[in-house]
């Protein structure tokens, strides 16, 4: 393995050896067992693989794992649990903003990045923030509703 890295993953320090070309979504899913991060298009277009790096929503399928050295990574596993869901996750459940569920982790994390910076977003701001997250079930109306509800709860 070519590179030694250290980073904070879901509030816990991680030390790993990775290949130079290794992408974060593969590291998370295949080496760390965190399969909440989904791999769909693999080209950075769909948003299913969204994670937060230093608070910013980014695409883990076009991010070299080595480049998160020294940074803070948050995946959906670090946000809430089944017993104790994060308010955004609860809002998605309450609004019925989940159909097949494949886009949901990315949607929730993108919503978190938005709400952390902008606690009371307008519909337009929510749409812009989520524009890069594709839901092929096309459940956008409920997703936007869920983000609004989560903002209200905060």
């Amino acid at each position: 393995m070519a590179v030694d890295i250290k980073f904070i993953l879901n509030d816990k320090p991680v030390e790993l050896q990775v290949e130079a070309q290794e992408i974060l979504v593969d590291t998370l899913r295949e080496r760390l067992g965190l399969t909440g991060t989904k791999k769909a298009c693999g080209t950075g277009d769909c948003g299913a693989c969204t994670v937060l790096v230093d608070g910013e929503a980014v695409r883990s399928c076009i991010l070299l794992t080595a480049s998160v050295d020294g940074k803070k990574v948050l995946t959906i596993e670090g946000l809430g649990t089944v017993e104790n869901p994060h308010p955004i996750q609860q809002a998605f459940v309450d609004a019925g903003a989940v159909q097949c569920g494949y886009c949901t982790p990315g949607m929730v994390l993108t919503a978190k990045a938005l709400l952390d910076k902008c606690p009371n977003p307008t519909t337009e701001q929510i749409k812009e923030a989520l524009a890069g997250n594709l839901c092929r079930c096309t459940g956008y109306t409920k997703i936007i509703k869920a983000v609004k509800a989560a903002a209200k709860k905060n």
Binding site: G42, T43, G44, C61, L64, A66
Partner: peptide, 20 residues
């Protein structure tokens, strides 16, 4: 990396060194 990382990950580009 929005263009090149995908190519690196699939070894469509296979350099001796990556300079990030």
């Amino acid at each position: 990396g929005t263009d090149i990382v995908e190519k690196l990950a699939h070894r469509a580009v296979d350099p001796e060194a990556i300079v990030y």
